[in-house]
């Protein structure tokens, strides 16, 4: 009965049916996110230990970060999370056009986030707060070595997050092309779901990074 459901497509050969494939794909992404959580978790735990050890200096150093730009970026990223979620729903209910435009908006928001992030790094570079590759580090405050450690963590955490953003944007673009082609709706639905999971994870990680780095200031 080919007319009954045009969404039907064959599962990959190792699976019995599409339902099993969807369960496997979704679970695979969750397991992958567990790995990612431990990757960021080790870095964040290290940061928290030093944050407690050098509370005053870290708070002082944190106040040199651009809170305004950081807040704008947080808003942008969370909005992109919303549009990804809406796009995912549109895909599964077959509203192709709105799925496409919502995902496009998400990608634009993601790119904007990265541009602002790069701009922030540039500002810190001009203020000589970038202690990498032997660049000069001039911190206007006491204990500049400890402040340097704060900035080391800052670049590791935001840098690693940016790498994940770039990977996430790649994933979203693949899904965008799939939506544009719309050759296998069942497959697009699966991809939108697991791609969305990844994007939300990157959002949530940013919330933690933003709180730890920007908000805990003096």
């Amino acid at each position: 009965m080919p007319t009954m459901n045009t969404m039907t497509s064959a599962p990959a050969e190792q699976f019995d049916d599409l339902d099993q494939q969807l369960r496997a794909d979704v679970m695979g992404m969750w397991v992958f996110l567990a790995t990612e959580m431990l990757l960021f978790g080790s870095l964040l735990t290290g940061f928290v230990i030093f944050r407690i050890q050098h509370a005053a200096v870290f708070a002082d150093a944190a106040s040199h970060l651009g809170l305004k730009l950081g807040s704008i970026n947080t808003a942008i990223l969370l909005t992109s999370g919303l549009t990804v979620a809406l796009s995912e729903q549109a895909v599964s209910s077959g509203r192709r056009r709105s799925a496409f435009s919502l995902l496009l908006i998400s990608i634009v928001l993601g790119v904007t986030f990265l541009c602002i992030k790069f701009y922030e790094w540039y500002i810190e570079y001009t203020e000589e707060l970038m202690p990498v590759l032997g660049l000069p580090f001039r911190f206007k405050g006491e204990h500049d070595h400890v402040a340097e450690l704060f900035f080391n963590f800052y670049y590791m955490m935001t840098g690693l997050h940016a790498v994940h953003m770039i990977a996430g944007l790649g994933v979203l673009m693949v899904i965008l092309m799939q939506i544009a082609r719309w050759s296998e709706p069942g497959r697009v639905t699966r991809q939108a779901r697991i791609g969305g999971l990844y994007w939300h994870f990157v959002d949530v990680i940013w919330v933690f990074i933003f709180t730890l780095l920007y908000l805990l200031r003096s």
């Binding site: 290290g46 030093f50 202690p131 204990h143 400890v146 340097e148 450690l149 080391n152 670049y155």
Partner: peptide, 9 residues
């Protein structure tokens, strides 16, 4: 990036 380096805290 000296997170393990005592000279950098």
């Amino acid at each position: 990036i000296g997170i393990f380096d005592p000279a950098l805290g």
